[in-house]
Write a protein that binds this DNA or RNA. Structure first.
Lengths: 166, 166
DNA sequence: TACGATAGTTGCAAGACGCAACGAAACACA
DNA sequence: TGTGTTTCGTTGCGTCTTGCAACTATCGTA
């Protein structure tokens, strides 16, 4: 049992955990408000962004990118299509599949949303050292990767109630 | 219009934005799974953590910490109380108010949840430079603060779309 | 042609949330 | 001291998001 000093790994990890929890919780709620006036849901906004980055995708691929069930993805696409932001195009190579494409309006909307977020992020980043910024970006991505791994192995990691006696 | 080099602020901000979006989205979904087997909801887990950190709180204070409506907080507390993790104690100084207290079982559960998260976070942090870690912690907190400010000023920032676009 | 696998859609239920209405207690003020 | 106002917490109700499972249509293969 090591003493909990300021530099104790567990203490530091606890700080990170709290910071991350607050951030996630806040974004969960804030984004809902922010996005509403743009007439798209949070998932919709993410879908637009993904489509803008990766080009047309099948529904399954989109669902995977969004980390949601394909049924949810289907509904999200339905909403976006109603508003004219995406198009469902039948896949010429596979009669079962569709390709979800961004329309011009969708691309425009996506640019607006991204601009907004980027602008805000830029302001935030200004106060940090370039080297630290690079490290942070890697950290965020690493965190996502690790979390994704754990999420994938839910059955095992979900109910490991006792890490020590295992 | 400067060219978008690797060090262009907007590009970097975009990278951050994407990284953060993925992280938040993933955690949003992963936490739901993770918490299920512990018999508490995500909000419930956060509430436990907050109570453990800050001690007994009024319902309003708890709601503020959770960033939710007091009605939601009331229900969350109701769930936790059913399971024996918290207690509603009448405030001796104010007949209207209550104090939400952690029970022993609640403290135990909270420790389990936190341990889990801390353990994971610790593993993640191990690979990063101490200086970068310090920067990151500050960054995360700054991000939360800024986001909170924007969330508070929703009326102004939410609908700064083009009014004539409808 | 028949069968199993795959893509996408939809019915259904559950969970989290906010708003608004409500009762009870505290407070302010005449 | 009595009355009106504010604050605290609870509850009814509707909405939104999501996943699971059942379903249809299509593809690939024997």
């Amino acid at each position: 049992m090591e003493p909990r000093t300021q530099h104790d790994p567990a203490t530091e990890a606890g700080d990170f955990h709290r910071a991350l929890r607050d951030l996630i919780r806040l974004h969960q709620l804030r984004d809902r408000d922010r996005v509403c006036c743009y007439d798209v849901t949070v998932s919709g906004a993410h879908a637009l962004e993904i489509l803008a980055t990766q080009g047309p995708l099948s529904l399954n691929a989109l669902a995977a990118e969004l980390f949601v069930d394909k049924s949810t993805a289907s509904r999200v696409v339905g909403c976006l299509e109603e508003r004219g932001y995406v198009r469902r195009v039948p896949d010429p190579l596979d009669g079962r599949a569709i390709r979800v494409e961004l329309t011009d309006a969708g691309a425009d909307m996506e640019a607006q949303l991204r601009d907004d977020a980027v602008w805000e992020m830029q302001a935030m980043l200004a106060g940090f050292d370039p080297e630290v910024r690079r490290g942070m970006l890697g950290f965020l991505r690493q965190l996502t990767r690790t979390s994704a791994t754990h999420a994938g192995a839910t059955d095992a990691s979900c109910c490991r109630t006792d890490p020590g006696a295992d």
